[in-house]
Design a protein around this nucleic acid. Structure first.
Length: 1031
RNA sequence: GGGCGCUUAGCUCAGCUGGCUAGAGCAUCUCGUUUACACCGAGAGGGUCGCGGGUUCGAGUCCCUCAGCGCCCACCA
């Protein structure tokens, strides 16, 4: 063992060994009580930051602890496609101004590629943190299964009338070129201006109303000017008409309560198409809604907008409109809040547009209770009725405040990267939401002929190679959590064998053989080498078909197409099936399914090379017969799919799936409070709506990670820290501890190098304690394999065991309450201050190696959830079998109060002697002569002698320093220092005075609890006793 | 404008339902190359718990006022 712990040489290997042991995979048939955490899926836009690191450290600690207390734990990993964020980054990445520069298909390909790269990196980083995640269940908010869940809930909501399409005032992000929900708009204070304009009356051209606005460019969209009904001018002017500046259009003067008499000129221009409040006014007064700003942020080329502004930006417009003119009066400086897009950082423009909304206040019949309710109410009830508890509690108030103000949720987005709205329109514009089915497909594993590059076509008897069988197993692994109930394969041996391997691996009963799934009949080419026939190894389907035509063909292209169509028709009726077919045939099926033809057909048929052993999915939608339909071009808000995360990852909408049955509802949802509304509240809303159950019972919100000074981390301040750098420098255990210990969900999490290195030191301390234990036990004839208590011998043994028992109990209590920081703090001090500083030292006096090892192994179990790597390493170093996480957290039934008390006295005596030594600046090597009065037993003396560096002997008590601890008086053979005694006496006297005063207070004796009074009395007599002895 | 927090040692923070001669880590100072560990050991100094009031036998802990700081929500053109 090295003198210092080297995390670099251990961490990656250990994580690999956990993965290899497949221990992280949860068992959905287990009888154990389950404990589930859905991992908040990191966005595939970036890399791991400290917020993620905190989340991972906290959740991993919870998961490991639960695992070690006998739960069947499941921590579901995944990533988020982060619609707008990703689309933005990809646009920038490609150097594009807007997405229309590329075809939708091509652009989505780019996004996919980008997302895949980022995904791989972030998964790697998550593993670096030591996260005990079940990677076999890894999900993605934008994969087929999640898409199926999204479409399913969309249909449910639509049919309940809770998803509606409406022409309403929305937030338009010019930067993202999309609508945003109210929550995605960030308001920032901006120093702008209040611009005053003259609106001349039509009937008296010299008279005008002075109107103030912060957005002059919306003037062209004005359809009224409003005064307050109580405004003195109202009587005179309401009903008259004024002219819109610059354009000369006539608009009415109206009276509306909304006008604030104390603001600006108390005269409001009303632009119903570009302001939410004006929209309301417009509704009340039946005003036209005139859109003048386009979705690209430029002025529309319409008659109401003067020609010179057509196609000009808002900014340009504003400059022009504030130049001197007969209408412009002045600009008054004015700070106000402007909405910004939370992703593209551009100004949000209120606009009128037809969009999809989730109605939160509309009544519907809850299918789980049969009662009338609203989504808003269900979301409120979660916390109000206590089904969902939020830690820290104060966020419950924030939660209610948000819900109280909640308005309909705009869910459609005009971006491309996201779940397409599952709505189709026919020629008449009627809405159709089809039923859908997903079928899984895969190619057979490598066959003997594949290995040799021989064309097999419909040749039946060709078996799989070793590699082919391995591929089949890989497919089975992928298919494990896909709820497959039946496998369908072709009648050719290689497909059948593949199917059988998967069938056996997954224990699926049903296997069907569909001969029509067979590979294309290549006639005379079968059995021939591809390379020799074509002169190259890469050939396309059409290459082969063309070649076949030259000789005798037993299957025509037309026949192939009609066979393919037949298969698709049959497949459309299947559910939960896995199809094993052949490369060319699958290509044809996919091409037909996607309605590809001509050149695109052949291109589309690629991608089924034998090395590519992956499941693919095919979706079947059921439309009404004979309708020509087109799908809504919009996509869904990214949070729509996130809202399903706790159950879409567990098999929903298949509520019969074993994962859903075993692990839903989940237990804890842990995340940063900044996404309480975006995400947590919506999961609660949709979870309760879709499953009848709230998706988790506890919400644990951690604070924002900031630097050691409590400052927000930001690029501009340059105080940002990359967790991966920190892991490299200090190790994952140290990073984890610094994010978990000394923090609370109430407050921001401060972190910095200083703190991390502090915990690195702790990890090293633990390592060295382990080194000591190993040295002590390596010579033992019988190696202590199991962590079994071999019995206490010495006083110190009893003391540490009693302490360990107590401390493990306390830690259990903390962890059950999710007070991880307190648990970490406790274990830190127990390990360092008690085990290392005292027990190890004491054990050098009276060694009991087996027992030392036992205690240490128990400590490792206790520390493991917080510090998985170093503890696992030590566990192995000490020759233990298996993995620490398979052990149970210590539950020790032992208490020896007497030993604790005596040992504490020894600690006090030793400390006192050391203090004297330090005060006298004595060399630590020098043995002091001490004399202890008060009947110490010999083990006690031995401990004191060793720990304090003294020797029991006869001392001239008159000249020696005297210290009093408990019932003992200790004389140390060094010159007396009167000042020291005096100081101590003064402090003691003050204490006595305080206690005395308290006890003399009648009210105290009467009102304070009896036990407290007794305690005070004892304290007083002890103090008096000590004072007496000191004198 | 509405709401929620925070203010305890030089720094970052613990102190739960009131019982504290007020704790920790880091930093500071002194001593130390004792065979687990200098990523260490031993010891020390340092706070009238933001201000003012109240409740109480007793307040860092509960209530009120004020001040400073932070955050969330709303959004008056």
């Amino acid at each position: 063992m090295d003198k210092a712990y080297d995390h670099k040489s251990t961490e990656d290997k250990i994580y690999q060994s956990w993965e290899d042991a497949k221990l992280m995979n949860a068992n959905n048939t287990s009888q154990k009580k389950q404990f589930t955490i859905p991992l908040p899926p990191p966005n595939v836009t970036g890399q791991l930051h400290l917020g993620h690191a905190a989340m991972l450290a906290i959740e991993d600690t919870m998961i490991r602890y639960k695992k070690m207390t006998g739960h069947e734990v499941l921590w579901v990993p995944g990533t988020d496609h982060a619609a707008i964020a990703t689309e933005n980054v990809v646009l920038k990445h490609l150097g594009m101004q807007n997405r229309e520069e590329m075809s939708r298909e091509k652009f989505l390909e780019e996004c996919k590629k980008f997302a895949q790269e980022k995904h791989d990196r972030i998964v790697h980083q998550i593993k670096k943190m030591g996260s005990w995640l079940d990677w076999s269940r890894e999900a993605y908010t934008f994969d087929d299964e999640r898409n199926y869940a999204v479409n399913t809930i969309f249909k449910m909501l639509y049919e309940d009338g809770l998803i509606v399409r409406g022409h309403r005032m929305i937030n338009w992000s010019v930067g993202a070129q999309s609508v945003l929900s109210d929550d995605e708009v960030e308001y920032r204070e901006v120093e702008g201006g209040l611009y005053h304009y003259k609106y001349f009356f039509t009937d008296s051209p010299k008279e005008y109303l002075e109107v103030a606005t912060t957005r002059p460019e919306t003037i062209f969209g004005d359809t009224a000017v409003a005064l307050h009904p109580k405004d003195k001018r109202a009587k005179k002017f309401v009903g008259k008409k004024v002219l819109v500046p610059f354009s000369g259009r006539e608009i009415p003067v109206i009276a509306d309560e909304h006008v604030d008499l104390s603001f600006g000129t108390a005269t409001l221009k009303v632009t119903p198409a570009h302001d939410p409040n004006d929209f309301e006014i417009g509704e009340r007064h039946n005003l036209p809604k005139l859109q003048v700003i386009g979705f690209d942020g430029t002025m529309l080329p319409i008659t109401e907008v003067p020609k010179e502004f057509h196609g000009k930006t808002r900014e340009h417009c504003r400059v022009e409109l504030t130049k001197p003119s007969q209408w412009f009066v002045k600009k008054v400086p004015h700070t106000h809040n402007i909405g910004f897009c939370y992703r593209s950082e551009t100004v949000v423009e209120p606009m009128l547009s037809p969009q999809w909304f989730v109605s939160v206040e509309k009544e519907f019949t809850d299918k789980w209770t049969g009662e009338k309710t609203t989504l808003k109410k269900l979301t409120q009830d979660a916390v109000r009725k206590g089904d969902v508890k939020i830690i820290p509690e104060r966020f419950e108030k924030t939660y209610f405040q948000w819900i109280d103000n909640l308005r309909d949720w705009c869910i459609s987005r005009q971006i491309w990267w996201g779940h397409r709205i599952p709505v189709w329109y026919d020629e008449k514009g009627t809405i159709h939401i089809p039923e859908e089915n997903i079928v899984f497909l895969a190619r057979h594993g490598e066959s003997e002929w594949n290995a040799k590059g021989i064309m097999q076509g419909s040749t039946k008897e060709v078996s799989l190679t070793e590699k082919g069988r391995a591929q089949a197993l890989k497919l089975a692994h992928e298919a494990k959590h896909k709820k497959i109930k039946k496998i369908i394969c072709s009648n050719l041996d290689r497909a059948r064998e593949t199917a059988e391997i998967i069938q056996k691996e997954l224990g699926i009963k049903n296997l069907e053989i569909w001969p029509e799934l067979h590979e294309i009949d290549f006639g005379h080419l079968e059995g021939k080498s591809i390379e020799k026939t074509f002169g190259r190894t890469h050939v396309t389907l059409m290459d082969k078909i063309t070649k076949v035509k030259e000789g005798t063909s037993r299957e025509s292209f037309d026949h192939l197409i009609s066979r393919g169509k037949g298969v698709l028709e049959k497949l459309a009726k299947e559910k939960n099936v896995l199809v094993i077919s052949h490369g060319a045939m699958l290509g044809v099926l996919f091409a037909l399914h996607e309605e590809k033809s001509g050149e695109g057909f052949d291109e589309f048929c690629q991608g089924w090379s034998i090395g590519n052993a992956h499941l693919r999915t095919m979706r079947f939608l059921k439309f009404p017969e004979g309708k020509k339909l087109h799908q809504d071009p919009d996509t869904l808000d990214t949070w729509f799919s996130s809202a399903l995360w706790p159950f879409s990852t567990l098999g929903w909408p298949d509520t019969e799936s074993p994962d859903y049955q075993k692990f839903y509802p989940t237990d804890v949802l842990e995340t940063g409070w900044d996404i309480l509304f975006f995400w947590v509240a919506r999961m609660i809303m949709f979870g309760r709506y879709a499953t009848g159950k709230y998706p988790f019972h506890t919400v644990y919100l951690h604070g924002l990670v900031c630097d050691e000074k409590g400052q927000k981390m930001s690029k501009s301040k340059g105080n940002g820290i990359d967790p991966i750098d920190m892991i490299d420098e200090f190790g994952a255990d140290a990073v984890r501890l610094s994010l978990v210990v000394g923090t609370s969900p109430e407050n921001p999490i401060p972190i910095g190098k200083g703190k991390i290195s502090g915990y690195r030191n702790f990890v090293n301390k633990l390592w060295n304690a382990g080194r000591f234990v190993k040295m002590q036990t390596s010579t033992l004839s019988t190696r202590v394999q199991k962590s079994k208590n071999p019995g206490c011998k010495s006083l110190a043994d009893k003391w540490i065991l009693s302490r360990l028992a107590r401390v493990s109990g306390e830690i259990a209590t903390y962890l059950q309450k999710y007070e991880i920081s307190a648990a970490g703090d406790k274990i830190y001090h127990f390990v360092w201050d008690e085990f290392c500083d005292w027990y190890i030292e004491a054990s050098k006096v009276e060694p009991n190696p087996e027992f030392l090892k036992y205690v240490f192994l128990e400590i490792l179990k206790l520390v493991h959830p917080l510090c998985p790597f170093v503890t696992e390493t030590l566990w192995k170093e000490l020759g233990s079998e298996g993995f620490l996480i398979e052990q149970t957290v210590p539950k020790i039934d032992f208490e020896d109060k007497k030993a604790e008390k005596v040992f504490e006295e020894i600690q006090n005596i030793v400390t006192e002697i050391r203090r004297v030594r330090s005060e006298k600046k004595l060399n630590p090597k020098e043995k002091l002569s001490i004399q202890i009065a008060g009947k110490p037993d010999s083990p006690m003396i031995a401990l004191i002698e060793t720990l304090a560096g003294g020797k029991q002997g006869s001392v001239d008590t008159k000249k020696a320093v005297k210290i009093v601890v408990g019932g003992f008086e200790i004389f140390i053979d060094v010159p007396v220092d009167e000042g020291r005694i005096e100081k101590e006496k003064t402090a003691l006297e003050a204490h006595i005075k305080g206690l005395d005063a308290r006890l003399k207070n009648k009210a105290y004796i009467e009102k304070a609890p009896r036990s407290l009074v007794d305690q005070t009395k004892k304290e007083l007599s002890d103090a008096k006793e000590k004072l007496k002895k000191l004198s």
